[in-house]
Amino acid sequence: MVENRPLLNLLSHLVLIVGVVIVAFPVYVAVIASTRGPTDFMSGLIPLLPGPHTLENYRRIVFSGVSTSGAPPIGMMMVNSLVMALAIAIGKIAISITSAFAIVYFRFPFRQLAFWMIFITLMLPVEVRIVPTFKVVADLGMLNSYAGLSIPLIASATATFLFRQFFLTVPDELTEAARVDGAGPMKFFRDILLPLSRTNIAALFVILFIYGWNQYLWPLLVTTDTGYYTIVMGIKRMAEVADAIPQWNVVMATVVLAMLPPVVVVVLMQRLFVKGLVESEK
């Protein structure tokens, strides 16, 4: 807006600040809690200043785990989450970009049908089809494996749909120029479509990585072996202890660590895709 009214400025800043506080406060509390002793949070008053137990708390979750709740050391869970999130993000992008390529650039029988079938799966997220999916995964012997964690989540229409929409905006002349230059379909895909999709791939990677990292229900179902626990379900296990008070300091330390990878991905990728957005401007 071009208006310059001090009152309006004040108001808009106020709204923004309130919004930021609402979003940031819980995160702040989590960080504070991870620096405090085990009983500080039971005293009735939530402390708002850092305490002296930071190193102790983090050392405990990283190296020994929380034995009372059966949670393994956090490192293994982080690796599992990372593997799962990367597999889901990369797998989804790979599958959806090739299927969008097929749907947009090739004329084959039942092409529309294929598109709509993919599209309809949008209405069937994991939670809806969780029981049959579990049955299939169990029958295939994929329980307690990385494949079982990631493959059922890879099949999805969102990314296919996004790539399809993007491919439709690529001018036909570009395809034709490539054909005249003698490029076959796969060359065209690799040399032209893939580089042009770079920004879309980056954006999707961010979204899908976080989606994969935050998966909770599915890992909870398909893993019973602690060696395959992911961090998000690990947090839940730590917080839910039988016959004892949850050790909030440790749980929150885990939470803070669990938050880091998505933050890193967002920060790194955001730079790439903002650059990409600016570049693709003609």
Binding site: P171, E173, L174, E176, A177, A178, R179, V180, D181, G182, A183, G184, D191, I192, P195, L196, R198, S280, K282
Partner: peptide, 29 residues
């Protein structure tokens, strides 16, 4: 196929490959 006809085409909107340098655009074929 167009690529096998030994022709070159100039399009109305040029259809240059936006992610390639001028050199690569010319060298691609």
């Amino acid at each position: 196929e167009p690529g096998e006809r030994d022709i070159a085409m100039v399009f109305q909107n040029y259809a240059l490959y936006p992610h390639m340098s001028v050199f690569d655009n010319m060298a691609y074929g």
